[in-house]
C-alpha cells in the first residue's frame, strides 16, 4: 500500500480499460494532488515558455528583445508546470525544507516534457544546472537544479556539466529581491568550464528570467554556440 508523497493519503489505484492488461504501477502521488499539479499547455511563448493565447512571443519577451543591453542574449526557455500556489507549496517543501524525495513526484512529467522539447532536436545534449553559492548550498544541503539535471541524466542519455559557479557576496537571497533590484544586479555567475557545444540550462523556477539571462549571457560570451533552458516551473 503506498501513500501520496504530497498529502500522505493512501493511494487507491485506479484500473480502467486503458491499463487493464498492464500490471498497475505504484503511483507516487494521489489523483487529487496530481489534478492540482497541471502542466503548461500549448500554445507557449517561444521565448520564455509561458502559456499564451496564440503562438509567438509574449509581450514581456518582445520588450526584452528591444532592450539594448539584452537583445544579443536571446533566450529559449521551456518549463513543465505553471508556478501556481499549490506548486509553490510543493516546491517550498522540496527546496527549502529539504524534502529531497519529493522530486519523484515530478519525474514522469519532467522526463516527458524534456523528451518532447529536446529529444532528437540536437545531437548531443549537455545539461548545465544553475549553481548555488556555497553559503546557500550549505543552508539547503542540495542544489535543486543539480538534482533535476541528475534525474534527467539518470533516465535519458545526457551529460551533466558544472560549467558555472556563483559568486557568494550576494547578501540577500535572490528570491526575496524585488524585480527591479534583481534586474539591476551584476552577473552573479562566472565560467568554470568553457563550453564549445550547445547547452541546456537547468533550474527549478523561472520567475523573471534574470537568472537564466545572466547565465546565458556569460556562456555565450565564453564561446558556447547556443544556450537554451529548461525549468521545472514558471
Amino acid at each position: 500500500m503506498s501513500h501520496c508523497l504530497i498529502c500522505y493519503e493512501r493511494i487507491v489505484p485506479q484500473v480502467t480499460w486503458t491499463n487493464l492488461l498492464l500490471p498497475v504501477k505504484e503511483a507516487i502521488i494521489c489523483s487529487e494532488c496530481k489534478e492540482k499539479l497541471p502542466i503548461l499547455a500549448a500554445p507557449l511563448c517561444e521565448g520564455c515558455g509561458r502559456e499564451m493565447t496564440e503562438e509567438g512571443f509574449c509581450a514581456d519577451c518582445l520588450k526584452w528583445q528591444q532592450d539594448p543591453q539584452w537583445k544579443r542574449v536571446p533566450i529559449t526557455n521551456h518549463s513543465v508546470y505553471p508556478f501556481q500556489p499549490f506548486m509553490r507549496e510543493v516546491i517550498t517543501t522540496w527546496k527549502y525544507r529539504g524534502d529531497y524525495q519529493l522530486i519523484e513526484c515530478f519525474q514522469e512529467e519532467l522526463l516527458h516534457a524534456f523528451e518532447t522539447f529536446f529529444y532528437k532536436k540536437e545531437e548531443s545534449l549537455t545539461l548545465v544546472p544553475i549553481p548555488l553559492s556555497n553559503d546557500r548550498l550549505i543552508e539547503r544541503a542540495f542544489n535543486q537544479a543539480e538534482a533535476l539535471a541528475l534525474l534527467i541524466n539518470k533516465n535519458i542519455q545526457v551529460e551533466v556539466v558544472h560549467a558555472l559557479t556563483r559568486k557568494s557576496e550576494e547578501a540577500s537571497k535572490q528570491s526575496k529581491m524585488t524585480r527591479k533590484k534583481r534586474l539591476a544586479r551584476d552577473n552573479p555567475f562566472t565560467i568554470k568550464k568553457q563550453q564549445s557545444k550547445p547547452v541546456i540550462l537547468i533550474d527549478d523556477i523561472y520567475t523573471t528570467g534574470m537568472t537564466i539571462r545572466h547565465a546565458t549571457k556569460i556562456l555565450l560570451e565564453s564561446g558556447c554556440p547556443k544556450v537554451t533552458s529548461f525549468t521545472l516551473a514558471r
Binding site: M1, Q14, P23
Partner: peptide
C-alpha cells in the same frame, strides 16, 4: 498487491 487483485 493493492489494485492488482483483479489479476487473480
Amino acid at each position: 498487491m493493492y489494485g492488482n487483485i483483479y489479476w487473480f
